[in-house]
Amino acid sequence: MTTKSNNIPMVQLTQAHKRFGETTVLEDINFQASKGEFISLVGPSGCGKSTLLKIIAGLHSLSEGEVVVDGMNPKNAREEMAFIFQEANLLPWKRVQQNTELPLKLRGESTERRVETARKMLELVNLSHALDKFPWQLSGGMRMRVSIARALTLAPRVLLLDEPFGALDEMTRDNLNEDLLRIHARDQWTAFFVTHSAAEAVFLSNKVVVLSANPGRISQVIEIDLPKERNAELREDPAYLNYVAKVSNAIRTVH
């Protein structure tokens, strides 16, 4: 899987600081992610994980320092990025199909392409049977699948996920994690994934970034040296369990 493009940074943060008024939320963040990397962000709540994602997305600007996405200012790299929110964040008045088409519609794609792409992405997340449902008719897990399908319609190169599965039960979450890895293996986007779960972070990522709070700083970066092809069996692997313990410990002791 290793190609030479692996070393070109997709996302790069250099001496990044973020203040809201007087309070410093993020301090001296230096980090870079290459193409295809899956990075998890963990840390106490309020430490600035969501803020960091929004900075990469160009929804917040930095107070100091620099953020570069695929060689560009984030605002110019929007077309290459998709954001998946904690709530599925669907339009309640639109059916699954139309919700999935939304980014393409906003971009002015033809109806034909919109319908076809949305269908394909919904198939990818196993929702072909629910095209005509409204969001309220779906379970939390299904709603999140729609959200993922919608994000994938634009074939993003960077995917930003802010605690996407935090509100789901464990089994649904595990299934979605496996699906996410399957799609990642296929599309090789660069992921930034915020989570509270050490197990989830280890299962998905090749790197786990542990943030400390007040102000948010990178306290530790833990490389997850597990095989690239992962499936449910990995969850019993001693090496995996070791990493989970290590990340849990890092989250607990951070301050």
Binding site: K54, L59, R78, F83, F85, N89, L91, L102, L106, R107
Partner: peptide, 24 residues
């Protein structure tokens, strides 16, 4: 707020934001 962010991420125009989001 999150829906507004979603539209901003999609580079939606002000008119699109009003028509497809604020009005409904």
């Amino acid at each position: 707020r999150n829906l507004l962010d979603l539209f901003e991420m999609s580079n939606a125009s002000k008119a699109q934001e009003i028509m497809y989001l604020r009005v409904p």
